[in-house]
């Protein structure tokens, strides 16, 4: 069973590596975007799924990463790849500091406090007009090269970012700290009397999660070569990220990645048909996921697809 999964994963990887030589530029863009979401969802899942803290505003660190790369490449002419460790570091440090007070909150309170952090950082960036360009946005230097090459370049860089997130999640789930996080998720009191330094581990989990999301932000900024506070802090990112995590299964390593692939490819297919009302369709799609498959597709369809299971899911949480 386990071996089968690993073989499947490497097969999937092999396909991804060779895909750029087969598919069109349009699909390369779609896939790069999918990798981006897979990175964000997988990275955020460390705090959300593993530790059980619904960091709704985790996208804040995506924005921070985007602006770190943005400011470093424009103002200080630092090469793009060199900026990425700084994206990770800024996410790590920021979440580490903010985590000490904020992670004392639980549930709804924690979720909204993270949204508060996101909005606050957004406003600060919005106001630092001289370095960030404020609400007008920031234009990054465009990469030199053939469009063909640039497409492939970002495809692979984003894929590596996604793989890094998956790798770190995998390692965390295998080692000692993974057990601590899972214990915290289920029962924090029980975890602490067993000797788990819960504030430390929660903060660490959030910091690692923020670092990964930060890297994704940095790559995104250089890829699109234009960022503004309203797109990188918030928008529909948080809810898409959550929907992906739920769709694939929050407690698993690869669940968010699979969720990202399903949701992004569905959206892409749907978008092209309903451009005018795509927001409404996205909203409905998310509502349907929550209603029918809140436990993720794997948990729900273990042993085959059936409509009865969807209805059972619906009945389980209803009043």
């Amino acid at each position: 069973m386990k071996d089968k999964k690993i073989i499947l994963f490497f097969l999937f990887l092999a396909v991804l590596i060779f895909l750029p030589y087969i598919v069109s530029g349009y699909w390369l863009r779609v896939l790069t975007q999918t990798f981006l979401f897979a990175s964000i969802a997988t990275g955020s899942n460390i705090i959300i799924g593993f530790t059980g803290y619904p960091a709704f505003g985790n996208i804040a660190f995506f924005g921070v990463g985007a602006y770190v790369t943005g400011v470093m490449t424009t103002t200080y002419n630092v090469p793009f790849l060199v900026t990425l460790p700084f994206c990770a570091l800024s996410g790590f440090v920021l979440a580490g500091i903010l985590g000490i007070p904020i992670l004392r909150l639980k549930g709804h309170y924690f979720a909204i406090a993270t949204v508060g952090i996101m909005e606050t950082i957004k406003e600060i960036v919005d106001n630092m007009v001289e370095t960030t360009g404020g609400g007008m946005g920031l234009t990054l230097p465009i990469m030199v090269g053939e469009p063909e090459f640039i497409y492939k370049y970002f495809y692979y860089v984003m894929m590596l970012c996604m793989l890094l997130s998956v790798l770190i999640c995998y390692i965390i789930s295998r080692i000692k700290i993974g057990y601590a996080l899972r214990a915290i998720r289920v029962d924090e009191d029980a975890a602490s009397v067993m000797g788990i330094n819960t504030p430390l581990y929660k903060t660490l989990a959030w910091a690692v999660s923020a670092a990964l999301v930060g890297i994704a932000g940095g790559i995104y900024a250089y890829w699109l070569s234009y960022i503004d506070p309203h797109t990188v802090f918030g928008g529909t990112y948080p809810v898409k990220m959550f929907a992906m995590i739920l769709l694939g299964g929050a407690t698993t390593v690869t669940g968010p990645l699979i969720g990202a692939f399903i949701l992004e490819i569905i959206s892409e297919l749907v978008w092209s048909k309903f451009i005018a009302i795509h927001g409404m369709v996205l909203g409905l799609l998310i509502i349907c996921i929550i209603l029918f498959i809140p436990k993720g597709i794997f948990e729900t369809f273990k042993g085959g697809f059936s409509f009865r299971k969807l209805l059972n899911n619906l009945r389980e949480n209803s009043l």
Partner: peptide, 25 residues
């Protein structure tokens, strides 16, 4: 009412999905 007993973030996302729908509507 169909999901009211689910975990809190499931409800959060549901209402956020509703928000996206209404705003775009």
């Amino acid at each position: 009412n169909l999901v009211v007993k689910a975990q809190i973030f499931i409800l959060l996302i549901l209402t956020f999905g509703l928000e996206i729908f209404l705003v775009n509507f």
